[in-house]
Computed example of a mutant assay.
Amino acid sequence: MSDGGEVGESRLVIFAALAANLGIAAAKFVAAAITGSSAMLTEGFHSVVDSLNQILLLYGQHRAKRPADEKHPAGYGRELYFWSFVVAILIFATGAGLSVYEGVVHVLAPEPPQDATVAYAVLAVSFVLEGTSWLTAVRAFGRGKGRQGWWQAVHRSKDPADFVVLFEDTAALVGLLFAGIGIWLSHATGDARFDGYASIAIGVVLAAVAVLLGCESKGLLIGERASPALIAAVRATISARPEVTGVGHVLTVHLGPRAVFVAADIDFVDAVPVGRIEAMIADVEAALRADWPEIDRLYLKPVAALG
């Protein structure tokens, strides 16, 4: 798939999740007001936070497209990593924090259970909508991960939009299950504290997701190397040239999801003229970018004899 296709599919996944969450949030708040359910109110906050997160990811994607300028010569690609880190903080501070707080309040001062018919109806519709968004995210991520395992693909992904929505939708489905169980237990036992326990459980799930997203986003924000396959290709392509006697350190770092900086130390044959070195560098750059279009900048540095 081309870079443009990958970006388009990534945006489609985010828009699908955003559309689902906006409608679900309104329905959950109405159901919470009618039933007095803490778990349902928590789920409403959860959907609002998810909606805000998807807006931030779209904003980050838009900002990351800006071309390099004098102030940011390496471009703005890594700005998406900043906003994905902000998303993780929002999930933890707002989503998880409000869920646990609301649950504790409901456990300490439980309200008598009200008719849950509306709550069950909203949960069922929400599960269908969230499930549809989750399937869209799973299919998109599955196509991009290749033969890698799911967790390995998440860890190696350089585009937060690929896995943030997947994690959010998974947490949303688990949260809906917890909310449904909590409401059912409250009515089955007459003990409204189960509704509060469900809110706390939802908060714990959100906190776990936030920590995972935060760790992945932090690594990208600091700067991660390119794939081992790209590094090996750079080394092999340069080493194959007759003008080269050795390749030293190859440095790579992602400037964005699909932009890689590459620098390599090269020992040239002493008798090779400068003009030939310049032509060779141009040939190597063209060959590498033909196979690896994500290479945004390539710097080849002549060094003394290696070894």
Rank of each mutant, 00 (worst) to 15 (best):
A226V: 00
Q152W: 04
H187E: 07
K71C: 03
Q61D: 03
G97K: 09
D50G: 06
S99H: 01
G95V: 02
G203W: 00
I202W: 00
A153R: 06
V154L: 11
V87C: 12
G60V: 03
F15E: 13
L90R: 07
R66L: 07
K158W: 01
L185T: 14
W151M: 14
S2Y: 04
R139V: 10
L166K: 04
P73D: 10
W83D: 06
P228C: 03
A171I: 06
P228E: 09
L18W: 08
Y197M: 04
F45E: 00
G60P: 00
R11F: 03
F163Q: 07
I277Q: 07
R66W: 03
L18E: 13
T132R: 12
A271M: 01
V49N: 03
A26S: 09
R11T: 11
L41A: 14
G180A: 09
A33G: 03
L288V: 01
P257I: 15
L185I: 11
A279R: 15
G246Q: 10
Y120Q: 06
A179S: 10
D159K: 14
K71Y: 04
E9N: 08
P73R: 13
F167S: 12
I24V: 01
S84K: 10
V125P: 02
I181N: 01
F194Q: 02
N21D: 06
A96Q: 02
A188C: 04
L90K: 07
R63K: 15
P113R: 14
V234S: 05
E285A: 11
P302N: 11
S227P: 04
E278R: 15
G248Y: 02
F178T: 04
S51Y: 15
G23N: 07
V165P: 07
V250W: 06
H155I: 14
V128L: 11
A68I: 10
T35K: 03
A264I: 02
E43G: 00
F141V: 13
A192Y: 04
V86N: 05
D159A: 13
A198F: 03
V174Q: 12
I91A: 10
M40Q: 13
F167P: 02
L90A: 15
L298H: 00
I183S: 05
E9P: 04
A236V: 02
H187K: 06
P160C: 13
L221I: 06
